[in-house]
């Protein structure tokens, strides 16, 4: 395996991904990511200089509309899926002391 993923990298990616991996999961993730990156490195066989990155297969443009509410007030139904709610608001755990 040419891509060696360090503990630091896995910890950093865990922060980006907002995932708390167990020790065992971390070891597996290091192996999996290293193998995947080895495989993805195959793309380096291709000379892509001068090729523009293509994010969509055909041209897409911004779609604008007037900022007007068309679907009414759905707050009551929307809050039905909330893990916790109070006075038409989502309740979240304490964010600072």
């Amino acid at each position: 395996m040419s891509n060696i993923i360090t503990d630091e990298t896995i910890d950093y990616v865990g922060i980006l991904a907002k995932l708390d991996l167990s020790g065992e999961e971390k070891e597996q993730a290091k192996k999996d990511m290293g193998r995947m990156l080895d495989y993805i490195d195959k793309l380096n066989e291709l000379d892509t200089s001068g090729v523009e990155p293509m994010s969509h297969a055909f041209p897409v443009k911004n779609v604008f509309r007037e900022d007007v509410v068309t679907n009414g007030d759905g707050s009551e139904t929307t809050l039905r899926n909330a893990p916790e709610e109070k006075d038409s608001m989502f309740v979240v755990p304490k964010t600072f002391d």
């Binding site: 980006l16 991904a17 995932l19 993730a29 999996d32």
Partner: peptide, 16 residues
């Protein structure tokens, strides 16, 4: 689950 985590980790890495 594990496969979803695997792809989220890889995706977070290639975008970092």
């Amino acid at each position: 689950g594990p496969e979803v985590k695997r792809r989220i980790m890889l995706g977070s890495f290639v975008l970092s």
